[in-house]
Design a protein around this nucleic acid. Structure first.
Lengths: 228, 228
DNA sequence: TCAAGCTATATTGTCGACAATGTTTGTTTT
DNA sequence: AAAACAAACATTGTCGACAATATAGCTTGA
């Protein structure tokens, strides 16, 4: 439970915040565990000042909860919270798809089609399936979010929600996703965006996320205790 | 530009954060202005430690932006950002209405009908019209959000987004809202929720917010310079 | 033996001071 | 006179120490 790799940011506080985010998302700092300021300060070799600022930021990201005069704890993952998280994601990312349908330039549309073709090739070759399944999936989604042009959507989704979502993925060993089905859905969404059909794009994105949610739910119900 | 009323919270940091939120939302600390740590620390009679933690929290709420080694500034209100904000609100609060249609107990439905009746009475008597127009409006919306049962929706909307929305209201003098039309829309939304028609409730809520957004937009375009 | 209260310990919250970075002012040079 | 450099100043970032609160362990009493 370590990996104290300095990320060299402008300020110690940001640096530590990023390290803590990584540590929590990957499970390096386990869910539900207490955040001890003296311990972490010693581990990272900093004082408690910037560390506390980082913790306040984590609270804002919803990765830890704080109680006055008691301290911070990493959130605990459970089914209800996961469903809650994906409800938000469905609403926001559906809206992002709608906006992308109006805003996305044709060059970016083409670029995304190329990306999906690459995913298709990965699947056909069965080569590095995991990439297409995880990173590739996020890649597509993040670019749709970017294309929405909404600064607040970008921040809420890319920087805040996705931390928790990745945390759920990391903590759910078995990922019974169906990459080919996901890719089909991605293509349908992109088609709608290319045709500037905002309503349809939103609808398809919401269904797509809802389906991913159900898959994750099944995986979680399967391994109720293996996730601790 | 003062009002240093202690709010007596468990911790100085929370206290100051709440005071700063109020000060920014009401315009006591003007939009775009620099947040000087020494100045504020002296004004509130605290040290810079808890003040900085409060500022980090404000950054998380999107009320200030920070630059490393330079400091924090209050956000600047403008049309694009307002439209962006209401886009998020439309997506999230639409989802809240949908969930409320499934979750809201009949007792709460009745209670909300009573609330709307009270608003109706206020309007008919033309007595304290401003209350029904502002506080009452928020009252209704916040209770729908509560009824969604989603902790994350409640937090995102009630605690984060609404701060910025209130800021826009405070900074836009002329509020050409049509309280009677708003009330009609509220009733329609509540009807859909009472009938457990989630799709309809979401649709109506989104239209309702979209309309409020357009009204605010007109008011802002009117007084482009009076809002500074 | 268990519960309640007290004491000792550890952790969080706050403070003032120092270091590092940005900003402003004044000077010099072209 | 304008631009570039330098020094003085102010602000932010970080630190270690102290105060306040919570937790753990021990003692006492029923």
């Amino acid at each position: 439970m370590s990996q104290i790799v300095p990320i060299k940011s402008a300020t110690l506080s940001e640096d530590i915040a990023q390290q803590l985010i990584n540590a929590i998302v990957t499970g390096d700092i386990p869910q539900g565990s207490k955040i001890s300021e003296p311990e972490l300060a010693k581990r990272y070799g900093i004082s408690r000042g910037p560390l506390r600022e980082a913790i306040v930021k984590l609270e804002g990201l919803g990765l830890v909860t704080r109680t006055a005069n008691v301290g911070a704890r990493v959130i605990e993952l459970n089914l209800a919270d996961m469903l809650d998280t994906f409800t938000i994601r469905e609403a926001l990312e559906g809206m992002a798809a709608r906006l992308a349908a109006s805003h996305m330039p044709t060059t970016e549309v083409d670029s995304l089609y190329a990306l999906l073709d690459k995913h298709q090739a990965f699947l056909d070759d069965n080569q590095d399936e995991h990439y297409a399944q995880q990173g590739g999936n996020d890649d597509f989604h993040l670019r749709i979010i970017q294309a929405s042009g909404s600064q607040k959507l970008i921040r809420l989704l890319s920087h805040e929600l996705y931390a928790v979502i990745r945390m759920y993925r990391h903590h759910t060993a078995d990922q019974r996703s169906d990459p080919r089905q996901a890719l089909r859905e991605h293509k349908a969404i992109l088609d709608a965006i290319a045709n500037q059909e905002g309503d349809l794009a939103e609808l398809l994105m919401r269904r797509h996320i809802s389906r991913a949610c159900r898959l994750l739910q099944q995986a979680m119900e399967q391994s109720t205790h293996s996730t601790q």
